[in-house]
């Protein structure tokens, strides 16, 4: 894909995304200033944050354009995950993930 991206509509959409994301970020603290949450609800919110992150990790590791990516990326992410589990620094986690995926692709695994 090397054709130039049609700029004005894409730029407008990007600016709208920036504005919308900012409003989403503002609304949480603004809502909380008005209502006091019971402790249980606070715990459930923490759980939802973890749920969203876990789902994001799974879908971005395993799928691309609605289908399975092929084994190279998830195996790389898994390697990074093992390093993270063993409390390796973040940079090591990230480089291990990319390195594994790159080596697998070099060996012909997609």
């Amino acid at each position: 894909m090397s054709a130039a991206v049609p700029l004005p509509p894409t730029l407008a959409a990007m600016l709208a995304l920036a504005a919308g994301t900012f409003l989403l970020r503002l609304s949480g603290p603004a809502l909380r200033a008005r209502i006091t949450l019971p402790e249980r609800a606070g715990k459930l919110l923490e759980v939802s944050a973890v749920l969203l992150l876990a789902a994001l990790a799974a879908t971005s590791a395993l799928t691309e354009d609605h289908v399975f990516t092929g084994p190279a990326r998830p195996l790389g992410v898994l390697t990074g995950g093992v390093f993270a589990w063993r409390r390796a620094p973040f940079l090591v986690v990230v480089l291990a993930a990319a390195g594994t995926t790159a080596l697998l692709r070099l060996a012909g695994v997609r």
């Binding site: 989403l24 970020r25 609304s27 949480g28 603290p29 909380r32 944050a49 969203l52």
Partner: peptide
């Protein structure tokens, strides 16, 4: 997800 983040 930033909305629930902002609450948490």
């Amino acid at each position: 997800r930033h909305l629930p983040f902002g609450l948490a």
